[in-house]
């Protein structure tokens, strides 16, 4: 599946934990597989899969919160994927990740889809069921928040 990495990255953006994201991606891929027969009917399988992932992750988060099983935000550092190593090489880059974790879900998703996956506004609108103007506002807000927090960190001189 050519876009499974995209699904995974979106899942990880929302769920934070690597394991959770992997499970979610696997779940989505299985669901897609079981729909194998009529998958041709969807005109855009990737968008469909992304929407599935989004809904699945939001459901997961909701059930987590309801079940008092909040995700542990500190458990993502212990894997040693190449990304993690790269991130450790540059501390301020890992801040961006942490800052993004603190954003509201909507902003997280918009920022992920736009700045990481480079989707255009129409696609994002289709995925998140939002109007282009709303996306622009959300995106602008998210970018400004990230920049501001990053500047705060810089001015504290931690890095």
């Amino acid at each position: 599946m050519p876009f499974k990495d995209k699904l995974y990255r979106l899942a990880k953006r929302l769920l934070v934990s690597t394991e959770e994201a992997e499970d979610a991606t696997q779940e989505i891929l299985m669901k897609l597989w079981s729909k194998n027969d009529n998958i041709g009917k969807y005109n855009n399988v990737e968008a469909f899969a992304m929407t599935m992932t989004k809904n699945f992750c939001l459901d997961r988060l909701k059930s987590k919160q309801a079940g008092n099983l909040k995700l542990v935000h500190s458990n993502y550092g212990d894997d040693n994927s190449s990304l993690q190593k790269q991130v450790e090489a540059n501390d301020s880059i890992s801040w961006v990740q942490k800052i993004m974790e603190e954003l509201p879900e909507q902003q997280k998703m918009v920022l992920q889809l736009r700045d990481v996956e480079e989707y255009d506004f129409d696609e994002i609108g289709e995925l998140l069921d939002m109007k282009p103007t709303a996306i622009r506002v959300t995106l602008s807000r998210a970018r400004k928040t990230v920049r501001e927090r990053l500047m705060q960190k810089h001015s504290y001189g931690i890095g």
């Binding site: 499974k4 990495d5 699904l7 995974y8 990255r9 990880k12 992997e22 991606t25 696997q26 891929l29 299985m30 994927s81 190449s82 990304l83 790269q86 991130v87 540059n90 301020s92 880059i93 890992s94 801040w95 961006v96 990740q97 992920q112 700045d115 990481v116 996956e117 990230v146 920049r147 990053l150």
Partner: peptide, 18 residues
């Protein structure tokens, strides 16, 4: 860092075998 992170985040791969 912001832009570097975005380019880096795009490199992340789903490695788990399904």
């Amino acid at each position: 860092p912001m832009f570097q992170y975005f380019s880096m985040a795009k490199e992340e791969r789903f490695t788990k075998q399904v």
